[in-house]
Amino acid sequence: MRGSIAQVGKDARPYSIRPFYESAQTTGGGFRYGFTGPSLNLRPEMTTSYEFGTELKFFNDRFGIDATYFKKKSVDQIVQNLRLSYATGFVLMTFNAGEMENSGIELQLNGTPVENSNFRWDVLLNYTKNNSKLTKLPGDVQEFYNSDTWLYGNVRVGSRVDGPLTTFTGYDYQRNDNGDVLINPSTGLPILNTSEWAIVGDRNPDFNIGLTNTFTYKNLSLNFLLDIRKGGDVYNATEHYLTVNGLSKRTLNREEPRIVTGVLKDGLENTANPTQNNIPIDLYRNSSYWASIYPHQSFIEKDVNWVRLRDVTLNYRMPTSIMQRVKFIEDLNVFVTGTDLFLITNYSGLDPVANGNSAAVGGAGGGGLDYGNFPLPRGINFGIRAGF
């Protein structure tokens, strides 16, 4: 059994509390205040973490369990370079932003189902599940979003107070009290609610599993890793771009008039008998149809699953009888490795492992944003590994 409780502090950059002078590069020289204003009430960011776990072994180490539960809470998070009003005499500011929590389970199972003098089969399974929550933002701010993830259309990685840190926010349809989409009676097109950003998806999967199998027969071994994910949403912005430009297969039957499912916003939408939409749309004469019927958030694909063969390696170790003849080499292996050889998924795009940004994007990152992304390539590697 094991357990730990830890608290770690994080400070801001130097000279963040009070204003300081810096050399002026303008004519006449001298000193002046910098762009960053003072933060007289700035407090250190504190993170408190709890972890409890156990490690169990059975059947002479033929089967093992390693389980961990963890929880972290960060308060007074430090956000740098908040833009100020120029009337303050400064441009940027450092301040304490809010609070967040992370918790989850990590489970590892290892076993050796078969073992004899010539053959051995080892199995290693890793299970992870993580949950997050944004518990507080300063003042009356209700959403924190990363502008670098506002790539294409009105969908971005945004976190709302009391919601997960991994959500998408965007514009949703206007709806009646029954949840039906409201239709403009003049155009027959759905009406977007552009006054508020709402949560329209969540990238966080239900769980992730990594399953490794290793088969060893004398000097020959085969090892492969299956990457399994259950749940989590992906924004297929590539498909939206193709659709609104008439390049997607879903636009092929454009000769057929369409009627959008919903109720008319005619004053009866919240009554017991709302008016069902019956306005046909001629796609040849309504160029705004595709962008209206398929707004950006409708391309967030829900509950994306996958099974991916991450890598497989076939290795041959030279027999000891041969290596004894070579005095300066103690061990020699010849191997071939294949990576990402197959993918099974319900995602309609090229690859659900998409990241719309580089690794430099902080916060919740840009994972789950697929806009012009290439799929992970297949790879074949041949190699020799020697021990001297």
Rank of each mutant, 00 (worst) to 15 (best):
F342I: 06
I228H: 03
A386N: 00
P295D: 03
N253T: 15
S4I: 13
V234G: 01
S85Q: 11
S287V: 13
E55T: 14
L134R: 04
D227P: 05
K302W: 04
E115P: 08
E330A: 13
E239H: 14
T47G: 07
S39F: 02
R317Q: 08
I329C: 04
F342K: 04
P190W: 01
K327H: 09
W290N: 01
D331N: 07
L84F: 11
I228L: 12
N245L: 14
L211H: 09
V155M: 04
V114C: 02
Y50D: 06
R160F: 14
A87E: 13
R32F: 11
E255I: 14
S358G: 15
R18A: 15
G153I: 09
S117M: 10
V161F: 06
D177E: 12
S348D: 12
V200A: 08
N270C: 12
N245S: 15
T27C: 11
E115C: 09
L222N: 09
F95P: 12
I105G: 03
G210M: 02
P44S: 14
G231Y: 05
G372S: 03
G365D: 01
G163M: 12
T167H: 02
G366S: 04
L92E: 13
N130L: 10
N278T: 15
L283M: 07
I329E: 02
G372L: 07
V263H: 05
I293V: 15
Q297F: 03
K218V: 07
G28V: 07
Q25D: 14
Y217L: 08
G53T: 03
L247K: 14
M100F: 04
F215L: 14
N193I: 08
L268N: 15
R385V: 05
E22D: 14
G210S: 10
I65R: 04
Q80W: 06
M323L: 02
D61I: 10
K302I: 01
N333Q: 11
F70N: 00
N208R: 09
N223Y: 11
A6K: 04
R83T: 15
N154Y: 12
S195T: 13
R2L: 10
S132K: 05
G338W: 05
T212W: 06
I78L: 02
F63K: 05
T88Q: 01
T214C: 12
W306M: 01
K230D: 10
G349R: 05
D202F: 04
G366V: 03
F144H: 13
F119V: 02
K327P: 05
G28C: 06
I65S: 06
L314D: 00
Y50F: 14
N96A: 04
T27N: 13
T275K: 07
T214E: 11
T271M: 10
I380T: 08
Y235P: 02
L107I: 03
D266Q: 13
S348M: 07
M46H: 10
P38K: 01
N176K: 04
S39K: 08
L314N: 01
D180G: 03
D266I: 10
S74K: 04
E330Y: 08
D76K: 05
F335R: 02
I228A: 03
